Simulated scan of single mutants.
Amino acid sequence: MEKLQTQGVGLPRLGLGTFRMQGDVCRAAVESALALGYRHIDTAEMYGNEDAIGAAIASSGVARGDLHITTKAWNENLAPDAMRRAFDTSLKKLRLDQVDLYLVHWPAQNMNLPAMFETLIKLKQQGRTRAIGVANFNIALLKTVVEQIKAPIACNQVEYHVFLDQTPLRGYLAAKSIPLVAYCPLAQGRAATDQTLMAIARKHGATAAQVALKWLLDQDGVAAIPKASRAESQKSNLDAQHVGLDDEDRAAIAGLPKNKRFVNPGFAPAWD
């Protein structure tokens, strides 16, 4: 699978999202994904499934060096001591000596960005995480982190799909050679039933979800982490890599509404 090279890490462009998967269901899903060839698994302390993912990794037989594991610090744990404790807990649950990418899950109102990134950089320097990054940061926050603090950000993970325009954010990230990792890439299932995407899918012998994923993967510097618990859906998402979209398809997708944000908690930053 193609990888995005960022801050010394090879990030597989298609990974498995695990939000709202827990326990045996999560473990089985990760075991299935790894057996199918997935090598990028995304989790977070807030998901409550790191222990299940750790068990799946341990039983998979896949060499650790072939895997990319991302986890995240919740926005209540961004003070230095709290972040270190959260990181230690995540690593223990995952049964790992090191994660590949450790992210700030969401910005918080009272966060001390310099102290926060000093802590993250130390974790990287200690070899406990190979790279650090952020999720759900808007351009203003990114400018502070990248241009003032000069933190070595390996990605920004944000909601991105065919119904949400992220052109300004993508432009800033591209200028700084920072990948965008798209979560919710199928718009919480809505892409699968969109008439425009279904028409494109029929043309290519594909599914609407595969069209939506391939639209993302065709963009430079973009990775995607669709959630899928069933092996059939996991394989279908992998097969999206082989769909060939043309200019007519891209024009039709460009005509879809681009203002649909489905993840917007009360503590989200101002996006515009």
Rank of each mutant, 00 (worst) to 15 (best):
W271N: 03
L11M: 15
C155V: 14
N110T: 11
M1F: 07
K176F: 03
L36G: 12
G10S: 15
A212L: 07
W215L: 04
T144D: 13
E147H: 13
R250P: 00
Y172R: 08
H242E: 11
Q166D: 10
Q5D: 09
F19E: 09
P185T: 10
K124D: 09
A52T: 07
H68I: 11
D42A: 11
L217F: 00
M116N: 03
R250Q: 00
K260W: 13
Y38A: 12
G10Q: 13
N75Q: 15
V62N: 03
A131V: 13
I225F: 01
P257N: 02
M116D: 06
A86K: 08
L16S: 06
R170P: 02
G8R: 10
W215F: 12
W215E: 03
Q7T: 07
G23Y: 10
K150T: 12
G266P: 10
A206E: 03
T196C: 09
L96I: 05
F262M: 14
A182K: 05
L34I: 09
A187C: 09
A135K: 07
Q22K: 15
Y47R: 10
L91Y: 05
L197P: 04
A201Y: 01
A270N: 11
A29M: 05
G61N: 06
Q219Y: 05
R20C: 09
L217M: 12
H105G: 02
K235I: 01
K203I: 05
H68N: 08
L197H: 02
F87D: 05
V104M: 06
A44G: 11
I57A: 08
L245Q: 03
R85M: 11
K92Q: 13
